[in-house]
Design a protein around this nucleic acid. Sequence first.
DNA 1: GGGCAAGTCAAACCTCCGTTTGAATCATCG
DNA 2: CGATGATTCAAACGGAGGTTTGACTTGCCC
Lengths: 233, 233
Amino acid sequence: MPDTTPDRATTTRDRLIDAATTVFAEHGFRDAGVREICRRAGANPAAVNYHFGSKQELYWSVLRHAFEKAGPAWPMPRLADEPTDPEGRLREWIRWFAERMFGETVMSQLMIAEMRDHTEALDRLIDESIRPVFEEVSGMVAAMTGLHPTSRRVELCVSSIIGQCLFYKSAKPLVERLHSHHRRDLPEIERVADHVYRFSIAGIRAISEQPWDESPRLDRASGKKREERENDT
Amino acid sequence: MPDTTPDRATTTRDRLIDAATTVFAEHGFRDAGVREICRRAGANPAAVNYHFGSKQELYWSVLRHAFEKAGPAWPMPRLADEPTDPEGRLREWIRWFAERMFGETVMSQLMIAEMRDHTEALDRLIDESIRPVFEEVSGMVAAMTGLHPTSRRVELCVSSIIGQCLFYKSAKPLVERLHSHHRRDLPEIERVADHVYRFSIAGIRAISEQPWDESPRLDRASGKKREERENDT
DNA sequence: GGGCAAGTCAAACCTCCGTTTGAATCATCG
DNA sequence: CGATGATTCAAACGGAGGTTTGACTTGCCC
């Protein structure tokens, strides 16, 4: 007896995709079990290999399917969509992104899981789904600062912004235990997004105003190679 | 024949701890294999169960051992250590933390791996090793802003700072592919740390100057529960 | 030396998991 | 109806991983 009502109307193949999407999102590729997927889909374990050839192929199909659905169903606020100022666009984008990080959307779960397990799917996932996000934010920051979108300073600012949001997702067990009043409802998400926005706007301004040496400082290359020490602590 | 010179002088138990520390740090608890640990330690697979009882118990011993070594060998710059200003202390702390995030220290690897797999060890790990870090940074931010160390605004600022640093660790495969000129040597780490510092200082000032409603906005609690929607995208 | 406990080892055990097999079922069409 | 191809199913296969077993070695004390 399957967990979820298996939608007898659809084909076994479709039910497998649906069930696998959920299980892969919850457990990642490695820890997801073919038997559990089939149980949830109300199908026989052999069905996976009959319809897809292998667990790996099923995974690819799930990702492809999630991509195609996520594209139109997950509209990222774009810089050119409305004639507001870059700051307003950034605020809107952070809110959008924070919602995706707090809410357990299947697509974000799949991406996080894939980042842990990194199968061969990671490259495609990054190129098709994450790089556009980076470039979009880079465009906003560039518009705010007058810097080139691919400049190092913009790159670092974008990482700072995304890093702040991603923190609540990737370090979720940590946040749940360390933050005194931790909730994940909508007003709370907006509170966090608001903070990230204000914090980042100030950071971006400070960085753009700083007359920085854009090239990576070669003058300090004299420091002995302290990198790659594997041992101790 | 074991991979690493197995230090014939030490006992089998100690060699097991050493080998297990490396393997657990590299693969996490779940993906680490008892057979590989024993191979590296030059021991028999049964040795784990003879000396520790189970793989789980070995894992606990590894964590305990790493804790005890990491404490004194991993000195976190403390606010009271030197009579500099809070800004200078924060700058020093970010540099220290960034080095730990970029460099592959065993302790940071163990923590990240444990955050993925979260076994029962996570709670202890957080309480003994991560919470002090949070509180230390909270103290710095509080000293800079005049806010209470446990206030919500300080909490959010600390998350922003740590989130920025953690990004380069938790999203490492992403950073490697998206950043145009990506290196992990010492000058590069200092470049990133410098950026995070300047970005954060400005963010903290902006947040502290904002006359914010400190209580979580209850007025918006009327929003219907949009949380926990599992489906779509 | 004899006995005894600690330690080590190869081999087997047990469970879980992805996959394969071969028979049974169903639909379609001549 | 009978044949054929697609689909479903229970059962088993083969391998990997943690654990157990039982014999063997080693060192120590009476």
